[in-house]
């Protein structure tokens, strides 16, 4: 898988993100346009192309959602632009409750403790889903991995909303 090869990493969902970031910085420096300032036009163009590719690969592999999407896509299952809806009632009921809880938090005058507690709940769900995705991908259970990944997207969305709330409440 090309994006993993760029960083000389084994193609796997479980990667060391700090190692990835370190390799990214090294490569970014090596292919920085400034290094090719005195080079020919074709050398400059090639370096630019390489730098863009490095950026794309890094952005894709950095986040668990896009990393899993990439691995699935390389295995012939592209879910990144799908418009499928999910209908798992118990999961959706739980999502409804989470959204309601988010509303409650946004109405609180002192939301700090509730935010921290909710963050913990969501991270626990995130870890659980990522472990499932990792297992399913290793066992080439791509459909199962895709289904867990769809759920992970809801959790990541909630985390982003919660972070926004946290930023808004000035007392933190």
């Amino acid at each position: 898988m090309k994006f993993f090869e760029i960083f000389n990493l084994k193609p796997d969902f479980d990667i060391d993100v700090s190692l990835l970031s370190q390799k990214y910085r090294d490569l970014q420096r090596a292919f920085h346009p400034d290094q090719y300032a005195s080079g020919s036009e074709s050398e400059k163009l090639l370096a630019l192309k390489k730098a863009t590719e490095i950026n794309d690969a890094y952005t894709t592999l950095k986040s668990p959602v896009s990393r899993a999407e990439y691995i699935l896509k390389e295995n012939g299952l592209d879910i990144s632009h799908e418009t499928t809806t999910i209908k798992d009632p118990s999961f959706l009921m739980q999502q409804m409750e989470y959204r309601e809880h988010l509303e409650e938090i946004s109405d609180m005058t002192e939301p700090y403790d509730a935010i921290i507690e909710f963050e913990d709940t969501l991270s626990a769900e995130q870890v659980e889903l990522q472990e499932k995705i990792s297992r399913d991908l290793r066992n080439a259970h791509h459909q199962e991995a895709a289904s867990a990944l769809r759920k992970l997207k809801f959790i990541v969305k909630l985390q982003a909303e919660l972070e926004r709330l946290e930023d808004q409440s000035g007392q933190l």
């Binding site: 879910i79 999910i86 009632p89 959706l92 999502q95 959204r99 809801f154």
Partner: peptide, 13 residues
């Protein structure tokens, strides 16, 4: 009827 869209995390009842 409960449905959700993974692409944007929307939930609809």
């Amino acid at each position: 009827g409960m449905v959700g869209a993974p692409a944007c995390g929307d939930v609809m009842k």
